[in-house]
Amino acid sequence: MIRAENIFKSFGETEVLKDISLEFKKGHTNLIIGRSGAGKTVLLKILVGLLHPTDGSVYYDDVNFTQLDKKSVREIRMKVGMLFQGSALFDSMTVEENIRFPLDMFTNLTLKEKRKRVNECLERVNLDGSNDKFPSEISGGMQKRVGIARAIVLNPQYLFCDEPNSGLDPKTSLLIDELIRDITLENNITTIINTHDMNSVMEIGDSIALLYEGKVAWQGNKDEVLTSDNEILQGFIFASPFLQRLREAALGNQQ
């Protein structure tokens, strides 16, 4: 479980996050949604420690992450996996070397054991046999899956995903969403996803927080999205007339 308590973040005069308090549950896919510029990425970077909050604290299972020294932060980070928006795969390394990198850095496994673990992860993301390809030789969706494989190679307890579906077609987006949800359930990990993909919200949103102008405007789950009267939520999720008609139709069917 990860808890953000009264997080404030300013860049100079600009206040980006204003008193954010959220709890991200274990075994759940926790979504942070909001319009561009709402502060989602800043919040995610604060949660993983890439940015320091101006005020407030982040707790990893009751350990105050924001107060830890560098060594303790690194110890916690070894339990963290992250999928980046652009995948952040190392261009000069093959798929196998990318996934093996955390094993090379932090384990004493033999090369054979490391290869076995890499193959397990590749199999998990349906990319077996892609070991020797370079990131430039595979598609965006495959790069995301390699990113997921690298994120889970050390069996993390916390998984962060920054815009996992950006730049992907709807079908591949669904596959990535399902993969993240399945990995979360299989390993009972705390997963936090930063997204503005509405399919993700409706498919895997076990717990959803909507950020609006640096504040939490709404909290709930995918089932409550349809029925909520929150105007900011409705304006964001069902932004187009087509989606509004879909919502009305869905509500009509429910009644």
Binding site: V48, L50, R74, E75, R77, M78, V80, G81, M82, F84, Q85, G86, A88, F90, D91, F101, P102, M105, F106, L154, F160
Partner: peptide, 18 residues
């Protein structure tokens, strides 16, 4: 710029040293 350094940081790598 490609977030490689952030990725390493999150893995727990001391990126300045590495």
């Amino acid at each position: 710029q490609k977030e490689h350094i952030d990725a390493m940081e999150i893995m727990g790598v001391n990126t300045s040293a590495f």
